[in-house]
Amino acid sequence: MFTPARKKLLLAVLVLSFGVQTGLVYSDERSEPLSEAAREGRALWQAYACQTCHQFYGQGGFLGPDLTNAASRVDSTRLVSLLTVGSGQMPPLGFSDVESAAMAAFLREMDRPEIGRGELRMGTPGEGAGARAAFERAVEAAIEAAAGRGEAGGTGPARATDQDPAEVAAGFAAYRIRPCSACHFPFRDSPVGAPDLSLVAGSAGSLAPDSLDQVLAEGRPLMGMPPPVPPLDAADRAALTAFLRFLAENRAQLEAATEVLAADRRLDWGALPWWEFP
């Protein structure tokens, strides 16, 4: 049995331990606070319950795209369109210019690749990425390799056709600034029925060139695919078609590279902006 003296000693140890723990917690290095504009955007994010559908660093819902790195892949025109008139399953929010600017500031300050990337894209941009991030890194590397071979006058898997790497890169950029990845998954059909984009173009693709151009211009509303936003002009459609052909012709190599980049995922949990997550 504990004597009164030992009980007092035990209580003192418990109180001391609690005090030490409290000191350690509150002396941790804190993330930089948000700017005033970004705090206004955060208030909008919380008021509209955006986390119900969207994620930051793996925290949030799964219905909409991960917005961890939205600032670096969605241009201002597209963002304003999404926040005002919506797109697909996202309802129109009718944001004013001031509200759109505040949300843009919030997304910009939350986009911190030194911590991690969307879909728990853990580690550096070149390794340990989530499936979609790894896919993007693999495509970027393949386009760079194709451009290098073209400058050197060489050939190889990434230069199997006469496609211009610059046009392929432009098509990839057009793909990234639109919410294509919200429905289309890399190298497989998505749960909502969106097809594998690496199988739609090229000599063995599921769509003839004219049909593909029509889909890129008008979408397939009756099948659940809305018209692209922002709209694709003729040059954009040609570039995006070149990108889809590039995917088809290099599918095996890109799929293998994506699997390698998606392995061994890591995240700097200590640097996460936990002050953001309620």
Rank of each mutant, 00 (worst) to 15 (best):
A158D: 01
G224Q: 03
T52Y: 02
A208V: 12
F106N: 08
E127R: 10
R108G: 14
P157S: 03
Q253G: 10
L93I: 06
P221C: 09
K7Q: 15
R78F: 07
A38F: 14
R251T: 10
M1S: 13
E29Y: 00
R6D: 05
C180F: 07
L207N: 14
A142N: 01
T22R: 14
G128K: 07
A104T: 02
R78M: 05
F135G: 13
G64H: 04
R132I: 11
L107Y: 11
F18C: 13
M122L: 14
E218L: 15
C183L: 00
D111Y: 05
V85D: 07
E218K: 12
Q55I: 14
A133P: 02
G64C: 09
G123N: 02
T84S: 15
I177Q: 10
E276M: 14
L9F: 13
V13G: 12
P278V: 01
P273E: 03
A47Q: 11
L11R: 15
A5D: 12
Q46P: 02
Y26H: 04
L240Q: 15
A158G: 00
A104Q: 06
A129F: 00
D233Q: 06
V192G: 12
G153K: 04
G61F: 05
Q51M: 12
Q253F: 00
F135I: 02
A43M: 08
A238H: 03
S203A: 10
A257F: 00
I143H: 02
R117G: 13
R30D: 14
G219N: 04
D162H: 05
A12N: 09
L207F: 15
S190H: 05
E276D: 09
E255K: 08
P65Q: 04
L82E: 05
V98D: 15
V260K: 11
P113V: 07
L107Q: 06
L24H: 04
E29P: 01
R121L: 01
A102N: 12
A146G: 12
A147E: 15
W275C: 10
P273R: 03
R112S: 07
T77H: 06
